[in-house]
């Protein structure tokens, strides 16, 4: 299972390196202009544009990690590996989660170094020290974003797997799969709305302070999507 993650990253190390370089370049440009109190230039905009494009490319690439084996010839190798459907999906999902965590950690680390640098060169800009409560809030926000992102990715994985399992022999299997995706999305949306009402939240979904029950809900949704997709990959696949 870990080998699968290894090859996912071996394949993309140049892409990640490009992302790190673009991010650092944009960061250096923005911080140096901030310190000199200059306006951002076209270069800043271009660097930010590249970063946005790389971010979007990563999302599409993460979707492609299930699309490629199911819809292209690569599946004839990956899906004959001695792994069951759950191990296979687990490796793919774990890689996505680790990448999300690594990106968040990298961004936070660079932002922290920026703050230290700004405090050093601009002593007048002394910032209030960060409290543990703020750190915890921040970690919760990251966890919540990761949970929601994993739900989104797993919903797409489930839809793609449906197209190559239960609906594989249907003439309009892909269309039916898309409708199924919308239905799952709608059902999940409705379920979360109900949950918010039950828990007494407003219309904006979960609050930043997340109760244990909310974490449980996220875990259950991820678990259901994971188990369903893993089962289809393991037992119903039709390449």
């Amino acid at each position: 299972m870990l080998n699968l993650i290894k090859y996912e990253w071996l394949r993309r190390w140049k892409f990640f390196l490009a992302g790190i370089i673009a991010f650092l370049a944009a960061n250096v440009d923005i911080i140096s202009r901030l310190v000199k109190q200059e306006n951002p230039t076209a270069l800043t905009a271009v660097l930010c544009g590249i970063l946005f494009a790389l971010g979007m490319a990563l999302v599409f690439d993460q979707i492609g990690r299930i699309y490629r084996p199911l819809f292209t010839d690569e599946g004839f190798l990956e899906l004959t590996l001695p792994l069951n459907g759950y191990q296979y999906l687990g490796a793919k999902t774990l890689a996505v989660a680790i990448e999300f965590g690594a990106v968040a950690l990298f961004v936070v680390l660079v932002a922290y170094l920026d703050l230290v640098y700004i405090n050093w060169v601009l002593p007048d800009w002394q910032l209030a020290p960060i409290t543990w409560a703020e750190v915890l809030d921040f970690l919760q926000a990251i966890g919540l974003t990761l949970g929601v992102y994993l739900i989104f990715i797993l919903m797409i994985y489930l839809s793609l797997t449906l197209a190559k399992s239960l609906f594989a022999s249907l003439k309009h299997g892909k269309l039916i799969t898309f409708v199924a995706f919308l239905l799952v999305f709608k059902a999940l949306d409705y379920f979360i709305d109900c949950w918010n009402i039950v828990r007494g939240y407003g219309n904006f979904g979960l609050s930043l302070t997340i109760a244990a029950q909310d974490w449980f809900l996220i875990a259950v949704v991820i678990g259901i999507l994971f188990a369903g997709t893993g089962y289809l990959l393991d037992r119903k696949i039709n390449l």
């Binding site: 899906l79 004959t80 069951n84 393991d234 119903k236 696949i237």
Partner: peptide, 24 residues
């Protein structure tokens, strides 16, 4: 090879049902 699932019947390789073990 385990790339397509049968609609019916039984298939065993070396006594194993088709799955991670048979793929080994």
């Amino acid at each position: 090879a385990g790339l397509t699932r049968a609609s019916g019947g039984e298939l065993k390789v070396n006594g194993q049902n088709i799955g991670a073990l048979s793929k080994q």
